[in-house]
Structure formats: structure tokens, C-alpha cells
Write a protein that binds this DNA or RNA. Structure first.
Lengths: 212, 212
DNA sequence: TAGATTGTTAATCGATTAACAATC
DNA sequence: TAGATTGTTAATCGATTAACAATC
């Protein structure tokens, strides 16, 4: 790469990165050192040309007839996503979904560590979930500063989402992963990522309809 | 619409439908009868022109200067997604995430009802989650037929996902909502929808990186 | 009527896909 | 060498956005 460009990677490619990463780690675990775009494509049900384009975004160069070095790809993708560093997160909303996320083992692969839990409900404060004591929301700002927390994972009811998000931003949170089914309006510069079950189910519904 | 076309709606539009639907239901709850694309756009942080294009897909016609009838839009979107009918689902994998989904209240708005739970782990069989008794996986085919179950919600570990999915298909399942971090290879005609935490977090990671 | 808003047609943008030369 | 696979350049496709006439 000779260009001075900051190397912007298209979002569709970024969304495919985790699937590549998992497959590559599997391959590495099985002692495989090289992999071709053709094979990756087959396993992930993508077209080889698309995989080659995606791999080009990682900056890793392949060898004709051989493919790409597995370890090199893993490092490049992990580094691009920042998953080789730990991101500390606070979870807000210790309900069903929140507890499930606390218990989710997969986040270690993403360098994501939930190290604090908050809830508005005073009756929950003091209880533990997954070995972490639930704190009162009022302590958020202090904890964010103290533990160098960058992101908040929002698993509160829809009605509370906007106000809690504003409170989180005021407490120093830079990024919000919003699981509440509510679109958030926050100042520019705050990063928002929504994960919405209904959106995903809508896709499934449309596909089912189309397949009939 | 004079066309004979089956009216294919773009996926990006379908993914926006749930957010429209929620907002429209809020509006209806507040007694609002008409809404303009301009206002919808503002609330959802979209461009008015995009909202008008999306609304055109619903088949609902607006009135210049007035907007769209809220109730008409709600019915059209719900009907398109099939959310005005109940879809019966089986959940496979009664772990943390599975239990959270069982407890999730929002699915009623999507016409989704989880009416059976299965797990491979014999020790879990017989226990209850959210008032539903966990059955052994071997009973899946029978239950699918008996309760007219259309989709399976897969919340099993990655290693088990492919084999369990194959088993579900053999048991008569037509659509799979896959929460396991594993790409599934299934026969054509089976509808697959994945919801992957890592994919969503990768987006967040990239946005955070870009915002620095 | 004047003006806000819709709906349509065309332009733009970005991602996917195709074609093919380069290479080990 | 022959052939599989990469990487680049161009073509295609689909969604977003712009421009503007139609309308209540």
C-alpha cells in the first residue's frame, strides 16, 4: 500500500470480518498455515472474488497458488477491529438480556470485558450477576473514570433508553451498544450501535414470506 | 400500483420497518392519526426522501400537505412482515441467551411465540423456563408436527450449531434463527437468519476507531 | 391562493461481480 | 511448464439521494 489514504474499509466488509476471524482461528487451531480465498468462500457461502476483495482490505498479501497466511490474517483483522486490545464496558440494565450478556463467553474473543453493572432498580443494587455487584446508576460517572470504561451496553426497557443513554454520555461514555428497541438521539461524536431483535426477525419474516 | 410485479421490497427497507412500526404505534397510542414522512425522518434520524421511498413500498398512499394515515401504515407494515399472524417457534438450547429470549416480552409485537424448548443436556430436560418445560431434542419432530411450529431459534454452542440445525431441518423446521456464532450449511429452501453479537460489535469497534 | 408535502423520474454513490493479466 | 490462485481494472447492480412536478 503506497497510498496516504486512511484506508477506509466498507461496512459490509467489516460485518464479514468476525465470521472470517472465527473460521481462521478454527483453521489455526487445526494447524493449518495457509488458506485460499476460494476455500474461505466455500466455507462461508460467499463468492471467491468477494473474499479476495475483503482480504485486500486487511492489507495482507496472498501468494498465487497458495493463498493467505492464516496467522497473518488473524492478526490483521483483530488489529483492525481493535480486538487485540481490551475494551472495558459497563452494562446498564440487569434484566434477562443483560444477565445473558454478562454470562456470554464469546466476548473474550472481541477483547470486550464487562467490568461493571448498573441498574435503576434499587432492589437490584448490591446483588451479583456473574460475580459482579450491581451498582446504582448514580455511581456511573465515577466508575467510568476510575475503571477507564469506554462503552456502555444498554439493556434497559425502551421507555428508559433515551434518558439513560443521555445520562451515560454525561458520565463520560463514548460509545453505546444499544439493545433497547428504541432509536436514540444523542450529540454528534457519540458512537451508537444498535442490536435489535425485531430488525433481525423482520429479515427472517421477509425471507420466510419469499420462500413460500 | 398497476404493476403485476410481486412487489419486492429491498432488504434495507425491510430492516427499517420495525423502527417505523414502533414509532407509529407510539404515535397511535398518543392519538395521532396522521404523520408526515418529514416528521418520521426526524425522529428516526433518516432523510425524508428515504422515508418516502420506504413508505411507497408499503403501498400506502399519502396526502400532500398531510402525510400518511398512521393506522394504515401500521397495518400495511405488520401485514407485509406477517406480524399480524402468530408464528410458532421452538427454542433449542436452554442456556443463558435462550432463557433471556424466552423472557423477552417484545416478541408479541412480532407475532412470535416460543411454545417449546429443547436441550441436548439430559439434566435440563424436565425443568421449566418461563413456564415451558424443557424437552429432549429427540422429541422435536413430533412437537413440530403437533404444534405447527415453523421456526427454530438456535441458541446452542457454536460446536453444536451445524448438527443441531441439520436435525431441526430433518424434523420439519422451515426457518432457522441462528444465534450461534457459526455459519450454517443447510439445503436450499431452508431459510436462515443469523443474529451475531460479534458482527454487531465489529461495527461498533470500527465506528469507535473512526471517531477517534 | 400559497405552501407544505407527496410521488416520480433521473443522477449519484457504493458494493458486488466479472474479466483477465500477473505470478508462483 | 501448466495451472491454480492472486490482484487489478472495468462493468454491473442496487440503494440512496436529488430535482421537481403534482396535489391538496
Amino acid at each position: 500500500m503506497n497510498s496516504v489514504e486512511p484506508n477506509v474499509i466498507p461496512f459490509p466488509t467489516i460485518r464479514r470480518f468476525p465470521a472470517y476471524l472465527r473460521l481462521l482461528k478454527d483453521l489455526a487451531g487445526n494447524g493449518k498455515e495457509w488458506i485460499s480465498a476460494t476455500t474461505l468462500a466455500e466455507d462461508l457461502k460467499l463468492k471467491p472474488i468477494q473474499v479476495r476483495k475483503d482480504m485486500a482490505c486487511t492489507g495482507v498479501e496472498g501468494k498465487p497458488k497458495v493463498g493467505f497466511q492464516v496467522s497473518e490474517l488473524i492478526l490483521a483483522i483483530e488489529h483492525y477491529l481493535g480486538w487485540d486490545d481490551t475494551t472495558y464496558a459497563a452494562l446498564i440494565g440487569a434484566g434477562n438480556l443483560g444477565s445473558a450478556l454478562i454470562g456470554y463467553k464469546g466476548f473474550v474473543d472481541n477483547g470486550l470485558r464487562i467490568i461493571a453493572i448498573f441498574d435503576k432498580d434499587r432492589r437490584k443494587v448490591g446483588r451479583q450477576v456473574g460475580g459482579i455487584v450491581i451498582s446504582q446508576l448514580e455511581d456511573l460517572a465515577e466508575t467510568v473514570k476510575e475503571l477507564k470504561i469506554h462503552i456502555a451496553i444498554l439493556t434497559v426497557p425502551a421507555e428508559a433508553a433515551q434518558s439513560v443513554a443521555e445520562y451515560a454520555v454525561a458520565s463520560g461514555i463514548k460509545g453505546i451498544w444499544n439493545f433497547a428497541p428504541k432509536s436514540l438521539n444523542l450529540p454528534d461524536g457519540v458512537v451508537i450501535q444498535k442490536t435489535d431483535l425485531a430488525t433481525s426477525f423482520a429479515e427472517l419474516s421477509a425471507k420466510l414470506k419469499a420462500s413460500e
